[in-house]
């Protein structure tokens, strides 16, 4: 189980952002972490000499310590898996019903992430006229997913990497962002100077960072705060 990461150190401009970054990294809700501030940073004077905060995030309910050589915990029983599917399905269905929307809801288990060792629970929503539920830049979808995660997590008394998609929006958006990343990386190289993208939410910035992670000629960095945080693509010194 050594690849199941339960601790993570994150450096970011603020504790909130560090938490958001860590949560996006491991695909878990922010509530799933205990936060320990290792360095609370400093604002500096007029932004000069400012130091970012450093926090350690520990996934809650992971009692096994790194040095604990006890056998791995029992895998969840099929009954637990079934219950998780049922509660997730019912929660999302109820939310939609209360919002006055008719749609088909299906819940299934996704593939275990090789990166985090966590198996996401995927909820697909299908139906007519659901663009209102996606919202600008997927913001309403993100809100729906956040609320659903909280409710399901509370009912099952454990954090869950619940991911909601609407009519394949996430997959389409990911393709779009990856193409955008490649196009701008190309322009960055041609012009030999840094390019920035539009501000976007953490999960979208992450797609760009990952897409260009191993690029030989450019690297990426997020700059700006909160709603204005955006990815910049920077040429590597040759």
């Amino acid at each position: 189980m050594s690849d199941l990461r339960t601790k993570l150190e994150v450096i970011a401009p603020s504790v909130e952002e560090a938490l958001a970054k860590g949560a996006a990294e491991l695909g878990l809700p922010e509530e799933a972490f205990d936060v320990e501030v290792l360095d609370s940073g400093s604002k500096g004077l007029f932004g000069l000499g400012s130091r970012q905060v450093r926090v350690r995030l520990t996934v809650r309910g992971q009692k096994r310590e790194a040095r604990d050589d006890a056998p791995d915990a029992e895998p969840p029983s099929p009954e637990d898996d079934e219950e998780t599917l049922r509660v997730s399905h019912d929660t999302v269905s109820k939310l939609l019903e209360h919002m006055g929307l008719k749609a088909d809801v299906q819940a299934r288990w996704g593939e275990i992430s090789t990166h985090s060792g966590i198996r996401p629970l995927l909820v697909d929503i299908r139906g007519k006229d659901l663009s209102i539920l996606i919202g600008r830049r997927g913001e309403t979808l993100t809100a729906l997913q956040y609320v659903a995660r909280l409710i399901v997590g509370k009912e099952l008394r454990k954090p869950l990497a619940l991911v909601i998609d609407i009519e394949g929006y996430r997959a389409r958006r990911e393709q779009q962002l990856r193409r955008l990343a490649q196009r701008l990386a190309h322009q960055t190289i041609e012009r030999g100077r840094t390019m920035s993208l539009e501000p976007m939410p953490a999960n979208e910035r992450r797609i760009i960072h990952i897409e260009l992670r191993d690029h030989p000629q450019v690297y990426t960095e997020s700059v700006g705060e909160r709603d204005l945080r955006k990815v910049t693509i920077i040429p590597r010194e040759s």
Partner: peptide, 21 residues
Amino acid sequence: GRGGRVANATRALLRVAAARS
């Protein structure tokens, strides 16, 4: 929620429900 996150998410869903009505 932290930084009003739960409240804001609830408001986002409320906007959809309101638009439907």
